[in-house]
Nucleic acid binder design. Structure first.
Lengths: 345, 345
DNA sequence: GTGAAAGCGCTAACAC
DNA sequence: GTGTTAGCGCTTTCAC
């Protein structure tokens, strides 16, 4: 067995400098600074020393010294899952693509938790703070949230919002209303007449816009959607599954269900399938076009949203030069008709 | 319009202390230290001042001063996606559950990239460095990897490996071999005799163990799997989709396909479905039991792995007291038979 | 090109 | 209880 040093300290820049016979300043220039201003001999010596010592820059110390860290910190609820949370999934991979360290601060479900999470993220002093996740219409904590974000920008940090529309920061949002409307007209064109909507919490802006758009689209086609055809619940698959059961228990005729996101649509689809013989044949449409749809039958009709490019756009905005006025980029989707909504008759 | 301060600095602890009329030390004790040793009056004053100033602790500075940061840093390839990458998805939510900041350093696909990513992660000085992702059997960079990880432990950090078996660190791994074996005997019991395996890259240890286990299980039932029935490709859904096509083009009889993970099994299933009428009815089985399976038809037979508890176990190990010898925890799965492998005859 | 030295914001002895 | 005082590891003027 080799001698085990009881507890070594991590090699510091000073150690590297000493071993290389140069000053810390020079070592720093070689290892980090973009400057070319170091003689080749020294340069090599420093590199060798660093390697020998297994030196890794202490990122925290760099952040303190420089006043700001590298990388992007995302504040979001829940997991960055392509299945359930494509928005944040897009941010993760956009950051990956740029080789930026990615930190996730996940917020709890209460509005106030969001503010707390933002403050936590501020503590990281990231280059870019991305806030994702739908806003609630009647959220009393909005002023606090804006205050925290504003402070971060004032401190020299950057902030980008995804999906959080209407706040005075650079924002990437989705054309939810338009998507809902297009979906409605598409379904009507296919011959459907009796609709139901499986939606998320009443005050969630995203689901509300999609729902409102859908209703408006129907209206444009001369169809009025009775209020009791809009079911409200959690914004997730399991809730949608349950809501579908509730819907079918009601003595109403429905030939097409619009779920405000794909995860929910999947819940609807699965419920319908689980009910098998009993359930009448009902068309289903979703919103988002998540990747997981590829392996689902029947193939789901949905509103395609270009997640990847949207997230990329967000990083482009946030990492690029600061603009005087908040920029807003609205990403448009388009309806993709697949098997879950076959033409009627 | 209000007066815009050109560029404010973030409030520092010293600012809070000054406004509260106490020393930085006291402010620190109130805002962070676990100590109760501060008089109530001062305590309140500090809290008020912090609020007034919108103070957020500079985490990087804390890390420097304390010598170690908070939170867990995960090194992994790709996205923490429940669909494609349940291992890392589990770590994300385990960290969330404990309220720990979670940082992801995503590694490239080359073995050397992993070492680089680990060194980057080291720079964060996290409480716990988790390394996930399967190891390659003939990986020449293993010594470098071990060296980097060892250094981190020597520096006082903690390391836990998930799936990276056989290295001298705390490890959580899966009973891949056993799962493969059990799947084989289960399928044989169901009446299947002509098998094919859709596997990942030859040198990937995870897929190899699963494949070997499967072959051994068949052997135990008196069935020999010809070598040409094991298809090798990327460890993902798209590759599996393609491989299935290749398999069916061959003039061999196959009545059951074992894919070494669910994502791949989904690719197989979808290919089979896309081929519709032409393809013979073939049973499909996977491995992992990812959540997305709930919405897929036919329901997929697979080896259930308790992801959540496995990741939780990993954090428990890594955050708990350091043990003299590396601990190894092997998580066992169990076969779940569903519709994709109906009893034959 | 290179080094000395002052700081970045915070913590943790140690004294009072 | 509370304040003083050293650092923590790095960057970055500013001289030389």
């Amino acid at each position: 067995m080799a001698e085990e040093p009881p507890l070594a300290r991590a090699a510091r820049l000073a150690d590297v400098a000493e071993l290389a016979g140069v000053s810390p300043a020079t070592a720093s220039r070689v290892l980090n600074g973009g400057h070319r201003g170091v003689r080749e001999g020294n340069r090599q010596r420093v590199l060798d020393a660093a390697k020998r010592l297994g030196y890794t820059a202490n990122l925290a110390a760099q952040t303190v010294a420089r006043g700001r860290g590298r990388g992007v910190t995302l504040v979001a609820k829940g997991m960055p899952d392509d299945y359930a949370n494509p928005v944040t999934a897009g941010v993760v991979s956009a950051a990956q693509r740029r080789g930026l360290p990615f930190t996730l601060i996940s917020a709890g479900t209460e509005p106030a938790d969001l503010v707390e999470a933002v403050n936590m993220a501020r503590g990281n002093r990231p280059e870019l703070l991305v806030l994702a996740g739908g806003r609630m219409a009647d959220d009393a904590t909005i002023p606090d949230l804006v205050d925290a974000l504003q402070r971060y920008e004032d401190e020299g940090g950057r902030v980008v919002l995804i999906t959080q529309t209407g706040l005075p920061f650079d924002t990437v949002s989705y054309a939810n209303h338009q998507g809902g409307r297009d979906m409605a007209t598409t379904l009507v064109d296919l011959g459907y007449r009796n609709f139901a909507v499986i939606s998320g919490l009443k005050h969630g802006l995203t689901q509300r816009e999609r729902t409102d758009g859908f209703i408006e689209g129907l209206a444009a086609s001369g169809i009025t959607l009775p209020a009791d055809r809009v079911l409200i619940g959690q914004f997730d698959r399991d809730a949608a599954y349950a809501m579908t059961g509730e819907l079918l228990r009601r003595p109403i005729e429905v030939d097409a269900i619009f779920a405000v996101n794909d995860a929910m649509a999947l819940g609807v689809l699965t419920f319908l399938r689980d009910r098998g013989g009993t359930a009448p044949r009902i068309a289903v449409a979703g919103f988002d076009d998540i990747k997981a749809l590829r392996d689902v039958t029947p193939a789901l009709t949905t509103v395609h949203l270009p997640w990847e490019s949207a997230a990329d756009e967000a990083l482009r905005m946030g990492l690029g030069p600061r603009s005087p006025e908040p920029q807003v980029s609205v990403i448009e989707g388009h309806v993709v008709v697949r098997e879950s909504t076959p033409p009627l008759r």
